[in-house]
Computed example of a mutant assay.
Amino acid sequence: MTNSALSLDRVQQLHPLQFLSPSAHQQLLAAAEQVKVSKGSIILKKRNTLPTTCYLISGQVELRHSFDDRKPLHANDQLACQPLEELVREGASVRALEECVLLRFERDLIAYLSTLTSDSDTYAVVNIEEGVDYLDDTLIDDDYQEDWTLQLLDSPLARNLKPVALHRLMALLERLPVKRGEQLIQMGSHADYFYILISGEAALSTELHGPFRGQTIELHEGSHFGEEALLGETLRNATVTMTSDGMVGRLNREQFLEVFADSLMPVLSEAEFLRRLNQLEGPCTLLDVRFREELRNDTRKQVLNIPISRLRSALPQLDRSTTYLLSAQGDQRSELATCILRQHGFNAYLQATPVDSQKQSA
């Protein structure tokens, strides 16, 4: 198999290469190295760090975490669009189950091309003349559906994700086919997963006495749900039901925190927290989201108290020019509050717990 046999379409399907410009795809195609691997060969060894990113183009491999934990991966599988090194946990290995072809790119080249943007790749320059309709109906695809990843990345939840976190999201996401009428989340149940709607449609039915007053919200490709109850470790306050066949991706709480914690719940050390609290980095407000009864013996001054259950309704009254510092005493509620605030465009940080401080010191 030669480079000429590798199509540009295939390169554009690989993650995260699909986010690069068309000219970058051409450069990657020219620089790609294709390697034929014989059956039984070890492709990635345990804790193996390479300067290249590797994709499976043909054949089948085994993702081996332990003797009892092995998963096959075929080049036609959807997960094969991810780099092999992102599909295995630290300490796992990849072995060829049959003769395979791998595609390798230099990491430095991908990093370099991701910083480049060509206007000619993105925009069409047109001289506008008054009275002329430039919209060509033949160019409109009525069946077009935007890629779910683009919808997700445009959401407040994922807008500030760093590339490494996005890679982890794609690697950790468990994909499940779902049927019309299937309940993904039931009101009043314990939270176990965060969900992304990869394909299909669903309906989210809210509590009658909750912040959305019993409203039913339509969910489409790229919609996400379930993170608030997961973070707050509370019962679900809505029901989500599929209104068509489709596919969802899900993360458990540990996986969700691994991917989103840095962007949605940044933690400040005790020293930095006090520095900001003393207004040394600009205006700041100490926010405690516990119930008022829990603050009876609190001796701190100038603490803004908004119970987590009322935070959403209070957002329009909050000051966007200040930084909100979330008290560590609020435990999971402070985590959830930080997440909500940052998704709505506020600058918010968590106070480090004693455990966090020990980790930072180490």
Rank of each mutant, 00 (worst) to 15 (best):
residue 190 H to E: 14
residue 79 L to N: 14
residue 348 A to I: 06
residue 354 P to D: 07
residue 189 S to E: 14
residue 309 S to C: 10
residue 302 Q to E: 15
residue 111 A to D: 14
residue 238 A to F: 09
residue 134 Y to G: 01
residue 117 T to N: 11
residue 98 E to N: 06
residue 299 T to C: 01
residue 258 E to Q: 14
residue 144 Y to D: 04
residue 25 H to N: 08
residue 214 G to I: 09
residue 66 S to R: 07
residue 39 K to A: 13
residue 329 Q to N: 13
residue 55 Y to K: 06
residue 202 A to R: 09
residue 283 P to T: 07
residue 292 R to Y: 12
residue 93 S to E: 15
residue 232 G to H: 13
residue 81 C to P: 00
residue 160 N to G: 01
residue 265 M to N: 06
residue 129 E to T: 11
residue 285 T to W: 02
residue 331 D to Q: 14
residue 308 I to M: 13
residue 105 F to H: 07
residue 356 D to W: 02
residue 34 Q to E: 05
residue 99 E to C: 05
residue 326 L to P: 02
residue 36 K to S: 13
residue 317 Q to C: 10
residue 314 A to L: 03
residue 356 D to Y: 01
residue 251 L to E: 02
residue 59 G to T: 05
residue 277 L to P: 00
residue 34 Q to C: 12
residue 144 Y to N: 07
residue 328 A to F: 10
residue 101 V to F: 07
residue 162 K to R: 14
residue 93 S to I: 05
residue 332 Q to S: 12
residue 30 A to C: 01
residue 296 R to L: 14
residue 129 E to D: 08
residue 135 L to D: 08
residue 262 D to P: 03
residue 127 N to R: 13
residue 270 E to N: 11
residue 322 T to V: 15
residue 161 L to E: 05
residue 53 T to V: 14
residue 258 E to C: 01
residue 232 G to Y: 10
residue 114 S to L: 02
residue 309 S to Q: 14
residue 348 A to V: 04
residue 282 G to N: 05
residue 64 R to V: 15
residue 304 L to G: 02
residue 59 G to Q: 08
residue 104 R to M: 11
residue 288 D to M: 03
residue 299 T to R: 10
residue 104 R to Y: 02
residue 324 Y to R: 01
residue 118 S to V: 00
residue 173 L to R: 04
residue 176 L to S: 09
residue 188 G to A: 04
residue 190 H to C: 08
residue 151 Q to M: 10
residue 53 T to F: 05
residue 247 M to Q: 15
residue 284 C to P: 01
residue 194 F to Q: 09
residue 268 L to K: 00
residue 92 A to E: 06
residue 59 G to F: 10
residue 84 L to N: 03
residue 195 Y to S: 04
residue 337 A to P: 01
residue 38 S to Y: 04
residue 236 R to Y: 06
residue 216 T to A: 09
residue 87 L to C: 06
residue 274 L to T: 07
residue 284 C to A: 15
residue 310 R to P: 00
residue 122 T to L: 15
residue 37 V to L: 05
residue 351 Q to Y: 01
residue 154 D to V: 00
residue 215 Q to D: 13
residue 355 V to E: 15
residue 175 R to N: 07
residue 149 T to L: 15
residue 91 G to C: 03
residue 302 Q to D: 15
residue 196 I to A: 01
residue 33 E to Q: 14
residue 167 H to Q: 15
residue 20 L to R: 05
residue 226 G to I: 06
residue 110 I to S: 03
residue 130 E to A: 14
residue 308 I to T: 08
residue 233 E to H: 12
residue 234 T to H: 09
residue 285 T to H: 05
residue 27 Q to D: 10
residue 218 E to D: 13
residue 75 A to H: 11
residue 328 A to P: 01
residue 269 S to R: 02
residue 254 E to N: 09
residue 19 F to N: 07
residue 229 A to Q: 09
residue 146 E to Q: 13
residue 52 T to H: 08
residue 286 L to I: 03
residue 244 S to V: 08
residue 288 D to G: 05
residue 276 R to M: 12
residue 228 E to N: 13
residue 295 L to K: 08
residue 297 N to L: 12
residue 3 N to E: 07
residue 180 R to G: 08
residue 192 D to R: 13
residue 347 N to T: 12
residue 124 A to S: 12
residue 357 S to F: 00
residue 56 L to C: 08
residue 316 P to R: 09
residue 26 Q to T: 12
residue 40 G to T: 04
residue 278 N to K: 11
residue 11 V to L: 11
